Computed example of a mutant assay.
Amino acid sequence: MTSPRPEPRHRARFAIVVFGVPALLGLVALVLALVWLPELPDPVAVHWGTDGVNGYGPAWVTILLIPVLGIGLPALLGLIALTSAGTRLPPVSARWTGAFVPALSTFLVVLATGTLAVQRGLSDAHDAGGIGGVALVGGVAAVAVGVIAWFALPADPLPAPDAATGASAGAAGSAGSSSPAIRLGPGERAAWTAVTSSPPLVVWLIIAVALVPVVVFLIVPEAWSAMIVTAVILVIALCLLSWRVTVDARGLHVRALLGVPVFHVALDEIAAVRTVQVDPLAEFGGWGIRLGTGGRLGIVTRRGPGIEVERTNGRRLVVTAPDAATGAALLTGLRDAARA
Protein backbone atom coordinates (compact mmCIF):
# COMPACT_ATOMS: atom_id res chain seq x y z
CA MET A 1 0.00 0.00 0.00
CA THR A 2 1.44 3.34 -0.95
CA SER A 3 1.00 6.68 0.71
CA PRO A 4 0.57 10.15 -0.70
CA ARG A 5 3.56 12.39 -0.59
CA PRO A 6 3.49 14.79 2.36
CA GLU A 7 1.98 18.16 1.65
CA PRO A 8 4.55 20.75 0.52
CA ARG A 9 3.75 22.94 3.51
CA HIS A 10 4.56 20.04 5.85
CA ARG A 11 7.92 19.45 4.19
CA ALA A 12 8.73 23.15 4.16
CA ARG A 13 7.79 23.62 7.80
CA PHE A 14 9.83 20.58 8.84
CA ALA A 15 12.87 21.89 6.94
CA ILE A 16 12.54 25.36 8.47
CA VAL A 17 12.29 24.03 12.02
CA VAL A 18 14.91 21.28 11.78
CA PHE A 19 17.48 23.03 9.58
CA GLY A 20 16.57 26.72 9.51
CA VAL A 21 16.20 27.38 13.24
CA PRO A 22 19.54 25.76 14.28
CA ALA A 23 21.31 27.48 11.36
CA LEU A 24 19.92 30.87 12.38
CA LEU A 25 20.78 30.39 16.04
CA GLY A 26 24.27 29.18 15.17
CA LEU A 27 24.96 32.06 12.78
CA VAL A 28 23.77 34.69 15.27
CA ALA A 29 25.90 33.13 18.02
CA LEU A 30 28.91 32.89 15.71
CA VAL A 31 28.61 36.57 14.76
CA LEU A 32 28.37 37.55 18.44
CA ALA A 33 31.42 35.49 19.31
CA LEU A 34 33.46 37.09 16.52
CA VAL A 35 32.33 40.57 17.55
CA TRP A 36 33.30 39.84 21.15
CA LEU A 37 36.68 38.43 20.18
CA PRO A 38 38.65 41.69 20.79
CA GLU A 39 37.09 41.93 24.27
CA LEU A 40 38.09 38.40 25.34
CA PRO A 41 41.19 37.56 27.36
CA ASP A 42 43.97 35.54 25.79
CA PRO A 43 43.76 32.67 26.54
CA VAL A 44 40.09 32.24 27.39
CA ALA A 45 38.66 29.92 30.01
CA VAL A 46 37.53 26.64 28.46
CA HIS A 47 37.14 24.49 31.55
CA TRP A 48 35.49 25.08 34.91
CA GLY A 49 35.89 23.10 38.11
CA THR A 50 34.23 23.27 41.52
CA ASP A 51 36.53 26.17 42.45
CA GLY A 52 36.11 28.09 39.21
CA VAL A 53 38.21 28.22 36.07
CA ASN A 54 40.86 25.51 35.84
CA GLY A 55 41.47 25.19 32.10
CA TYR A 56 42.47 27.64 29.38
CA GLY A 57 42.79 27.66 25.61
CA PRO A 58 42.58 29.82 22.50
CA ALA A 59 39.26 31.53 21.88
CA TRP A 60 38.88 29.87 18.48
CA VAL A 61 38.30 26.49 20.17
CA THR A 62 35.07 27.65 21.78
CA ILE A 63 34.08 29.66 18.70
CA LEU A 64 34.57 26.58 16.53
CA LEU A 65 32.21 24.58 18.77
CA ILE A 66 29.35 26.93 17.89
CA PRO A 67 28.94 25.92 14.21
CA VAL A 68 30.07 22.33 14.79
CA LEU A 69 27.71 21.50 17.66
CA GLY A 70 25.08 24.19 17.14
CA ILE A 71 24.62 23.68 13.39
CA GLY A 72 26.51 20.58 12.25
CA LEU A 73 25.20 18.07 14.80
CA PRO A 74 21.52 19.11 14.47
CA ALA A 75 21.88 19.04 10.67
CA LEU A 76 23.23 15.48 10.91
CA LEU A 77 20.26 14.40 13.03
CA GLY A 78 17.82 16.01 10.60
CA LEU A 79 19.47 14.43 7.57
CA ILE A 80 19.35 11.01 9.18
CA ALA A 81 15.63 11.45 9.83
CA LEU A 82 14.97 12.49 6.24
CA THR A 83 17.17 9.75 4.80
CA SER A 84 15.41 7.04 6.79
CA ALA A 85 11.93 8.36 6.06
CA GLY A 86 12.60 8.80 2.35
CA THR A 87 9.99 11.13 0.91
CA ARG A 88 7.62 10.53 3.83
CA LEU A 89 7.47 12.73 6.88
CA PRO A 90 5.08 11.00 9.32
CA PRO A 91 3.62 13.62 11.67
CA VAL A 92 4.57 11.86 14.94
CA SER A 93 8.18 11.24 13.93
CA ALA A 94 8.51 14.64 12.30
CA ARG A 95 7.25 16.43 15.40
CA TRP A 96 9.59 14.58 17.76
CA THR A 97 12.57 15.22 15.49
CA GLY A 98 11.49 18.80 14.89
CA ALA A 99 11.24 19.46 18.62
CA PHE A 100 14.46 17.72 19.66
CA VAL A 101 16.84 19.09 17.01
CA PRO A 102 16.33 22.85 17.57
CA ALA A 103 16.17 22.28 21.33
CA LEU A 104 19.54 20.53 21.27
CA SER A 105 20.99 23.26 19.07
CA THR A 106 19.70 25.96 21.42
CA PHE A 107 21.26 24.36 24.49
CA LEU A 108 24.66 23.83 22.88
CA VAL A 109 24.78 27.31 21.32
CA VAL A 110 23.79 29.05 24.55
CA LEU A 111 26.33 27.01 26.51
CA ALA A 112 29.20 27.78 24.12
CA THR A 113 28.28 31.44 23.63
CA GLY A 114 27.58 31.98 27.32
CA THR A 115 31.04 30.83 28.35
CA LEU A 116 32.45 33.61 26.17
CA ALA A 117 29.94 36.21 27.34
CA VAL A 118 31.01 35.88 30.99
CA GLN A 119 34.61 36.66 29.96
CA ARG A 120 34.01 39.87 28.02
CA GLY A 121 36.13 42.75 29.25
CA LEU A 122 38.33 40.59 31.48
CA SER A 123 42.10 40.85 31.30
CA ASP A 124 42.53 37.47 32.94
CA ALA A 125 40.16 34.57 32.27
CA HIS A 126 40.82 33.30 35.79
CA ASP A 127 38.50 36.05 37.03
CA ALA A 128 35.52 34.63 35.13
CA GLY A 129 32.72 33.47 37.38
CA GLY A 130 30.95 30.15 37.29
CA ILE A 131 28.74 29.13 34.39
CA GLY A 132 26.01 27.33 36.28
CA GLY A 133 23.67 30.19 35.35
CA VAL A 134 24.62 29.82 31.69
CA ALA A 135 23.76 26.12 31.75
CA LEU A 136 20.44 26.90 33.44
CA VAL A 137 19.56 29.54 30.86
CA GLY A 138 20.52 27.12 28.09
CA GLY A 139 18.30 24.40 29.53
CA VAL A 140 15.29 26.68 29.92
CA ALA A 141 15.78 28.12 26.43
CA ALA A 142 16.10 24.63 24.96
CA VAL A 143 12.83 23.50 26.54
CA ALA A 144 11.07 26.65 25.32
CA VAL A 145 12.34 26.24 21.75
CA GLY A 146 11.45 22.54 21.75
CA VAL A 147 7.88 23.25 22.88
CA ILE A 148 7.45 25.99 20.27
CA ALA A 149 8.83 23.71 17.57
CA TRP A 150 6.47 20.91 18.61
CA PHE A 151 3.41 23.11 18.17
CA ALA A 152 4.78 24.68 14.99
CA LEU A 153 4.84 21.33 13.18
CA PRO A 154 1.76 19.60 11.71
CA ALA A 155 -0.24 17.57 14.20
CA ASP A 156 -2.16 15.43 11.71
CA PRO A 157 -2.55 11.90 13.09
CA LEU A 158 -1.18 8.85 11.27
CA PRO A 159 -3.79 6.88 9.30
CA ALA A 160 -5.37 4.01 11.15
CA PRO A 161 -3.56 0.65 10.84
CA ASP A 162 -4.80 -1.67 8.09
CA ALA A 163 -7.06 -4.24 9.68
CA ALA A 164 -5.52 -7.18 7.84
CA THR A 165 -1.88 -6.42 8.32
CA GLY A 166 -1.62 -4.00 11.20
CA ALA A 167 0.61 -1.86 8.99
CA SER A 168 0.09 1.84 8.91
CA ALA A 169 -1.67 2.92 5.78
CA GLY A 170 0.44 6.02 5.83
CA ALA A 171 3.72 4.16 5.62
CA ALA A 172 4.60 3.27 2.08
CA GLY A 173 5.50 -0.32 1.45
CA SER A 174 4.54 -1.44 4.96
CA ALA A 175 1.63 -3.67 3.97
CA GLY A 176 2.25 -7.28 4.97
CA SER A 177 1.29 -10.54 3.33
CA SER A 178 0.67 -13.96 4.85
CA SER A 179 3.74 -16.10 4.44
CA PRO A 180 3.65 -19.33 2.40
CA ALA A 181 4.78 -22.41 4.30
CA ILE A 182 7.90 -24.51 3.86
CA ARG A 183 6.69 -28.06 4.41
CA LEU A 184 9.00 -30.64 5.98
CA GLY A 185 8.78 -34.34 5.33
CA PRO A 186 8.52 -36.99 8.06
CA GLY A 187 11.60 -36.97 10.25
CA GLU A 188 13.03 -33.84 8.62
CA ARG A 189 14.32 -30.98 10.69
CA ALA A 190 15.18 -27.46 9.63
CA ALA A 191 16.32 -24.19 11.14
CA TRP A 192 16.88 -20.69 9.79
CA THR A 193 19.04 -18.02 11.36
CA ALA A 194 20.17 -14.53 10.41
CA VAL A 195 22.00 -11.63 12.01
CA THR A 196 20.38 -8.22 11.63
CA SER A 197 22.41 -5.11 12.42
CA SER A 198 21.87 -1.37 12.25
CA PRO A 199 23.43 0.50 9.31
CA PRO A 200 26.56 2.64 9.87
CA LEU A 201 24.47 5.82 9.74
CA VAL A 202 22.62 4.80 12.90
CA VAL A 203 25.90 3.90 14.62
CA TRP A 204 27.29 7.35 13.86
CA LEU A 205 24.08 8.92 15.16
CA ILE A 206 24.48 7.12 18.48
CA ILE A 207 28.12 8.18 18.69
CA ALA A 208 27.13 11.78 17.98
CA VAL A 209 24.46 11.75 20.68
CA ALA A 210 26.87 10.13 23.15
CA LEU A 211 29.43 12.87 22.50
CA VAL A 212 27.04 15.62 23.61
CA PRO A 213 27.31 14.86 27.36
CA VAL A 214 31.08 14.45 26.91
CA VAL A 215 31.29 18.01 25.57
CA VAL A 216 29.13 19.24 28.44
CA PHE A 217 31.48 17.53 30.92
CA LEU A 218 34.58 19.01 29.28
CA ILE A 219 33.12 22.51 29.61
CA VAL A 220 31.43 22.02 32.99
CA PRO A 221 33.25 19.27 34.92
CA GLU A 222 30.80 19.65 37.80
CA ALA A 223 28.34 17.91 35.50
CA TRP A 224 30.11 14.58 36.03
CA SER A 225 26.76 12.84 35.71
CA ALA A 226 26.99 13.59 31.98
CA MET A 227 29.63 10.88 31.68
CA ILE A 228 27.24 8.41 33.29
CA VAL A 229 24.70 9.33 30.62
CA THR A 230 27.29 8.62 27.92
CA ALA A 231 28.13 5.23 29.45
CA VAL A 232 24.46 4.28 29.67
CA ILE A 233 23.84 5.32 26.04
CA LEU A 234 26.77 3.24 24.80
CA VAL A 235 25.84 0.14 26.82
CA ILE A 236 22.24 0.27 25.64
CA ALA A 237 23.40 0.81 22.06
CA LEU A 238 25.68 -2.22 22.19
CA CYS A 239 22.74 -4.32 23.38
CA LEU A 240 20.34 -3.13 20.68
CA LEU A 241 22.39 -2.57 17.51
CA SER A 242 22.73 -6.21 16.46
CA TRP A 243 20.49 -9.25 16.91
CA ARG A 244 20.42 -12.92 15.95
CA VAL A 245 17.04 -14.11 14.68
CA THR A 246 16.39 -17.87 14.71
CA VAL A 247 13.48 -19.99 13.53
CA ASP A 248 13.46 -23.65 14.62
CA ALA A 249 11.36 -26.20 16.47
CA ARG A 250 11.18 -23.80 19.43
CA GLY A 251 9.47 -21.10 17.36
CA LEU A 252 10.83 -17.60 16.80
CA HIS A 253 13.83 -16.68 18.94
CA VAL A 254 15.38 -13.19 18.86
CA ARG A 255 18.47 -12.50 20.96
CA ALA A 256 20.78 -9.52 21.14
CA LEU A 257 24.32 -10.49 20.22
CA LEU A 258 25.46 -9.55 23.74
CA GLY A 259 23.02 -12.12 25.13
CA VAL A 260 20.31 -9.84 26.45
CA PRO A 261 17.54 -8.99 25.91
CA VAL A 262 15.81 -12.05 24.48
CA PHE A 263 12.39 -12.40 22.84
CA HIS A 264 10.72 -15.76 22.16
CA VAL A 265 7.45 -16.81 20.58
CA ALA A 266 6.65 -20.53 20.85
CA LEU A 267 4.99 -22.33 17.93
CA ASP A 268 1.75 -22.94 19.85
CA GLU A 269 1.49 -19.17 20.52
CA ILE A 270 1.57 -18.21 16.84
CA ALA A 271 -1.71 -17.32 15.14
CA ALA A 272 -0.26 -15.90 11.92
CA VAL A 273 3.05 -15.14 10.25
CA ARG A 274 3.56 -12.36 7.70
CA THR A 275 6.39 -10.82 5.74
CA VAL A 276 6.43 -7.03 5.93
CA GLN A 277 8.44 -4.09 4.66
CA VAL A 278 9.49 -1.97 7.64
CA ASP A 279 10.18 1.76 7.69
CA PRO A 280 11.77 2.47 11.11
CA LEU A 281 10.74 6.11 11.49
CA ALA A 282 7.39 5.95 9.74
CA GLU A 283 6.13 2.89 11.61
CA PHE A 284 8.15 2.75 14.84
CA GLY A 285 9.55 6.24 15.35
CA GLY A 286 13.15 5.03 15.27
CA TRP A 287 15.43 2.03 15.75
CA GLY A 288 15.84 -0.51 18.53
CA ILE A 289 13.06 -2.02 20.62
CA ARG A 290 10.08 0.11 19.69
CA LEU A 291 6.32 0.23 20.07
CA GLY A 292 4.94 0.89 16.61
CA THR A 293 1.71 1.64 14.81
CA GLY A 294 -1.13 -0.72 15.58
CA GLY A 295 0.42 -1.61 18.95
CA ARG A 296 3.12 -3.77 17.36
CA LEU A 297 6.34 -4.40 19.29
CA GLY A 298 9.28 -4.01 16.94
CA ILE A 299 12.92 -5.05 17.03
CA VAL A 300 14.01 -2.68 14.32
CA THR A 301 17.57 -2.36 13.07
CA ARG A 302 17.10 -1.10 9.53
CA ARG A 303 14.64 -0.30 6.80
CA GLY A 304 13.62 -3.33 4.74
CA PRO A 305 12.09 -6.80 5.06
CA GLY A 306 10.90 -8.20 8.35
CA ILE A 307 8.91 -10.99 9.97
CA GLU A 308 5.67 -10.14 11.74
CA VAL A 309 4.29 -12.74 14.14
CA GLU A 310 0.78 -12.40 15.52
CA ARG A 311 0.26 -14.28 18.76
CA THR A 312 -2.92 -16.08 19.70
CA ASN A 313 -3.60 -13.31 22.24
CA GLY A 314 -3.56 -10.70 19.46
CA ARG A 315 -0.16 -9.19 20.25
CA ARG A 316 2.27 -8.78 17.38
CA LEU A 317 6.06 -8.84 17.18
CA VAL A 318 7.99 -7.46 14.21
CA VAL A 319 11.70 -8.09 13.65
CA THR A 320 13.68 -6.84 10.68
CA ALA A 321 15.99 -9.41 9.11
CA PRO A 322 17.67 -10.21 5.79
CA ASP A 323 15.91 -12.96 3.82
CA ALA A 324 12.90 -12.54 6.09
CA ALA A 325 10.66 -14.34 3.58
CA THR A 326 12.53 -17.62 4.07
CA GLY A 327 12.41 -17.34 7.85
CA ALA A 328 8.70 -16.52 7.79
CA ALA A 329 7.93 -19.43 5.43
CA LEU A 330 9.78 -21.91 7.63
CA LEU A 331 8.10 -20.55 10.75
CA THR A 332 4.70 -20.96 9.09
CA GLY A 333 5.52 -24.54 8.11
CA LEU A 334 6.75 -25.44 11.60
CA ARG A 335 3.67 -23.85 13.16
CA ASP A 336 1.36 -25.82 10.85
CA ALA A 337 3.24 -29.07 11.53
CA ALA A 338 2.99 -28.51 15.28
CA ARG A 339 -0.78 -28.15 14.96
CA ALA A 340 -1.20 -31.29 12.87
Rank of each mutant, 00 (worst) to 15 (best):
A194I: 11
G130N: 07
W224R: 09
V273L: 03
R302L: 14
L77C: 03
R9T: 11
G327D: 06
F107G: 07
F151C: 06
D323N: 15
L73Q: 03
R339C: 10
D124W: 04
L158G: 13
V46M: 11
T301D: 07
G133W: 12
T2F: 13
V245N: 05
A135K: 09
G133P: 04
W150T: 06
V262I: 11
L69T: 07
G49D: 08
G78V: 01
A149R: 02
T246Y: 08
L252Y: 01
T62P: 03
A208N: 03
S225A: 15
A271G: 10
T301R: 10
C239W: 10
I299S: 04
R5M: 14
L240H: 06
V202S: 02
I289L: 13
V216Q: 05
M227Q: 05
H10A: 13
P199Y: 12
D323L: 14
V46I: 11
V262Q: 12
A75R: 01
A194L: 12
D127K: 08
A338S: 13
L240S: 09
S105A: 15
W243S: 01
P161Q: 04
D51R: 08
A337Q: 13
I16P: 03
A112G: 10
A181Y: 08
T87Q: 15
I270Q: 02
D248H: 09
G294L: 05
T312H: 06
G185R: 10
D127T: 11
A94V: 09
L240W: 06
V232P: 05
F151A: 04
Q277H: 13
T2C: 14
R9D: 12
F100K: 09
G298D: 05
R250Y: 01
W48Q: 00
A340L: 12
V17E: 06
S179P: 07
R316I: 04
R339W: 07
S168F: 00
L136D: 11
V214E: 11
F151W: 09
L37H: 14
V203Q: 15
A324P: 08
V232M: 09
V235H: 03
V101K: 05
R274S: 07
D279V: 08
R302G: 12
P74A: 04
V53W: 04
G166W: 01
A128S: 06
V18F: 00
V254Q: 05
V109K: 01
G70K: 05
W48M: 00
A172W: 13
D124C: 02
W287C: 08
S168V: 01
C239R: 09
W287P: 05
G294M: 06
L334H: 01
R335P: 02
D127V: 08
H10W: 10
D127I: 07
